[in-house]
Write a protein that binds this DNA or RNA. Structure first.
Lengths: 157, 157
DNA sequence: CGACAACCGGTTGCACACAATTCACTGCTA
DNA sequence: TAGCAGTGAATTGTGTGCAACCGGTTGTCG
């Protein structure tokens, strides 16, 4: 059933994939860290602010769905963003289980300071728009495959 | 100087790239988590064991270079692996600053139990070998670009 | 109407990940 | 050889990220 010939090759490939994805993720992080540091943001906090800027206001639940983060991660993160003065959190009046997140005035001003970050980072990568789009598509394809695989494993292979 | 037309498009692209890379990384993690959990390993611990299995023995320094991790991450991680009985750490006799990491007998037995993980995970992704190789190459290319970019930013744009 | 399940956010505990610091050891040099 | 800069690992502090659990709110069903 299993092909013995490919076994070693497959193992090598998997190992390398693990390594390089891990490395890519941290390289991305390392590139943004100093740039975002100037604004007083971490990378995950930047993702939250990007979402809030675009959507205007949204609940913690929605934020978690968009960013794939649970409350255990978002609660303390949002608390820090609130303490820094960038966002405001308040219980929804219609559904008191929900908490609505909004940018403060200071948070909105931050958007202007963050405006040239994409250009700085992207131009630094030396990739053109076509390559970036391709990469984006590839990553989406992989993520979907992984999600499908995870769901399949959950339901007993 | 800056092209106003592309600005919004670029911003949107960067945002999506940030999001999806983050998501891919965590999807990968989530896929491995339950499988590795059966062996009592986390994903980073698995990467360490893969390296130790392949190299036989290596110093913490070398491990850090291969996995792109510093001692602040590796020290406690290795301590946990040692406590679990999978590796042994001892000061090098030639250079007492270095610590050599080796698999224990139990750690070697673990390798056999881990042997079918790559097949399980890879087959679950539904990607064929050619696609996996392509992805691997893409990620390497991006990581190198990001590293170059980071170095360039460090030296003042 | 009242019980009960589902839902939402927060908290706790554990494990990365990095920056900054400390400490022992090494190697070079005056 | 004595001092000193450099190196390798460990430690500390902060910030994710997830699992498990808690507590208040909502909606539904008997």
């Amino acid at each position: 059933m299993t092909e013995r010939v490919d076994s070693e090759e497959l193992l090598r490939l998997e190992r390398q994939l693990c390594f390089v994805l891990h490395a890519t993720s941290r390289a991305f992080d390392a590139l943004y860290r100093p740039v975002l540091g100037e604004l007083g943001l971490t990378y995950p906090q930047y993702l939250v602010m990007l979402t809030v800027w675009e959507r205007g206001e949204l609940t913690v639940k929605e934020l978690g769905r968009v960013l794939r983060l649970d409350s255990g991660t978002l609660s303390p993160l949002l608390k820090r963003l609130e303490k820094a003065g960038f966002v405001r959190r308040e219980r929804s009046r219609e559904d008191e289980r929900s908490v609505v997140v909004r940018a403060t005035e200071q948070g909105t001003r931050l958007r202007e300071q963050a405006r040239d970050i994409p250009r700085r980072v992207l131009s630094a990568t030396g990739l053109d728009e076509q390559q970036l789009s391709q990469l984006h598509a590839d990553l989406i394809r992989v993520t979907e495959a992984l999600d499908t695989a995870a769901a399949r494993l959950e339901q007993g292979e």
